[in-house]
């Protein structure tokens, strides 16, 4: 059983609807003949069927397991228990704690990447010497595997004895911070933000480059200073890319796992356990497949709730 099933079943189902609806629309509006309509359906069928199976098999299995008491240590005695696993997962105090951690993590990383991404993109949009190299360096963290970057942060930067940050702290005579014990969630937020900052910067930079130069000049002629131009011209122009960043990052941030696994293992206590990590610990630390499956389905519901509110709040910006 995969330890992060929460988004994989929900996403193909979403794209499935999107795939079929527009594909059939042109024929229904009368642009195609009956024959091409039939041909289109026939040609689409294998792809749609494959996607459907791809989605339905794991989902069905997850639902099936979620209704069983099924522990890997005692796999003989699997038995049907109804919604007992869900009741257990939802009433577990760890669930609320990890839900809160998940939301704090997603929210903070979104905030940090956008708040830092905007000035960074503005800087990279300026004609400075060596701009291409600077751009490349800014983008680089995005290509580092999460496990690797988490290891680097843990051992080279945030290590309380031999880390760079500890060395800097000692340089100023301050006691070094024990990141993963004193402020573990914040440490994770820093690492994940570092990984996602390039993505936000890149999207915002391309948007800035598409901002019409004459619009800024018109604002200049209208008497707008740098700040007014930013507030009234640049920021509204960035509304759409910011929305894209929020939506895409949220999808991935809900499932952050490797960074936690490598650095804190969810601890101390439950301080850095998010939903994804909770499900993992349910399945592969406690060997409780039934409970983990129920947790996975709960995660799917949570992801959909978050998506619903996100689209309500920021999706308006995506309309043309």
């Amino acid at each position: 059983m995969a330890h992060t099933p929460e988004l994989s079943p929900s996403q193909p189902s979403g794209s499935l609807h999107r795939m079929t609806a527009p594909a059939l629309q042109p024929t229904e509006t009368g642009t195609g003949t009956r024959q091409t309509q039939l041909l289109a359906r026939m040609l689409l069928t294998p792809a749609v069927a494959l996607l459907f199976i791809w989605m339905i098999v794991p989902l069905a299995l997850t639902i099936y397991f979620s209704l069983l008491r099924y522990n890997l240590l005692d796999s003989e005695s699997a038995q049907f228990v109804g919604f007992e696993n869900f009741r257990y997962f939802l009433t577990d105090p760890a669930f609320l704690a990890s839900l809160q951690n998940t939301l704090v993590l997603v929210g903070s990383v979104l905030g940090l990447t956008i708040l830092l991404g905007i000035p960074l993109a503005l800087l990279l949009d300026q004609p400075v010497i060596g701009r291409n190299i600077v751009r490349l360096m800014v983008i680089a963290p995005f290509f580092v595997m999460p496990t690797v970057s988490a290891l680097i942060w843990k051992n080279l930067l945030m290590h309380p004895v031999s880390g760079l940050f500890a060395w800097i702290a000692k340089l100023f005579g301050a006691p070094p911070i024990d990141w993963f014990n004193d402020i573990p969630l914040f440490a994770i937020i820093l690492i994940v933000s570092w990984q996602w900052l390039p993505f936000a910067t890149l999207i915002l930079l391309t948007a800035l480059q598409s901002l019409d130069e004459e619009q800024k000049e018109a604002a200049e002629m209208d008497g707008a200073g740098a700040l007014s131009t930013f507030i009234y011209i640049t920021l509204p122009h960035l509304a759409r890319p910011i929305t894209v960043v929020i939506l895409i990052e949220t999808i991935f941030l809900l499932t952050v796992f490797a960074e936690i696994f490598v650095t804190t293992g969810g601890g101390p206590g439950l301080q850095t356990t998010n939903i994804a990590f909770l499900i993992y610990s349910q399945a592969l630390i406690q060997y409780d497949v039934g409970g983990a499956s129920a947790g996975g389905l709960v995660a799917v519901v949570i992801a959909n709730i978050v998506a619903f509110f996100l689209v309500r709040i920021v999706g308006r910006n995506l309309e043309a």
Partner: peptide, 13 residues
């Protein structure tokens, strides 16, 4: 002075 640009440069939002 005020200027009318070739692309109009209206503020789209």
């Amino acid at each position: 002075l005020s200027m009318v640009f070739q692309s109009y440069a209206l503020y789209p939002h």
